[in-house]
Amino acid sequence: MSYCVNCGVELEKASRACPLCDTPVINPREKTVSEEKPAYPEKLTIPKSTNNLYLCFVFSLMILIPNLVVIIINAVFFDNPVIKYVVGGFALAWLWFLFPLLWKKPIPAVLVAIDFVALIAYFYLFRFGGDDTGWVYSVAIPIVIFLWAVVNAFLFWLRKKRSKSAIAVAVLAAINIMTFVSEITMSVFFAKKLQIVVSLVMTACCISLMVFFIVLDKSKRMKAWLEKKFFI
């Protein structure tokens, strides 16, 4: 029988360290330590999460039924052209949120590519529907392609393990870049001149938050305090 030199409690024969204080057990007289079985098996039971296929099926039905009803009612009574944007929007939502549930191990870059191609196709709906005043080619598609590049760069950077604070800083930087790109593209197209106001306000907010996260990354004490107070 072994006792913890630190806590004074008697330990199981199979213990290699005290479960209360992690002090290693060194008892030259107990040579059969490894032969003894511990009090609990090594295997953890982690229950399976909800069946993704089932979830996908239920939500797909929830999207499909009202859409079919709306399409039929529109075809019979109204013949409103706006319907294609609504149905297209739902199809896009399905592809973004429910399609990933069908994959067991989705490859992020492929998933992102599918999502962005679908988004570009959705904007093309406006062009072919005759509701484009030039904004699809000049504003929407450049912003989407730039966002696609930013997301890909972020995913590439995320291949290595990063701290939560570093991820937060990267996300804030990406948001800031996207604000600049969007504002420049939209102001040039709509106001016909370069206008940078919202982006500067956004930059101020993002930089202050980025400084906070950088400080947090370096201060273990602050991190421990926040983790304790705001755990979910």
Binding site: C4, V9, E10, L11, E12, S15, R16, A17, C18, P19, L20, P38, A39, Y40, P41, E42, K43, L44
Partner: peptide, 8 residues
């Protein structure tokens, strides 16, 4: 006398 699942 202590037993625990900590190591597991």
């Amino acid at each position: 006398k202590i037993e625990s699942n900590r190591s597991a």
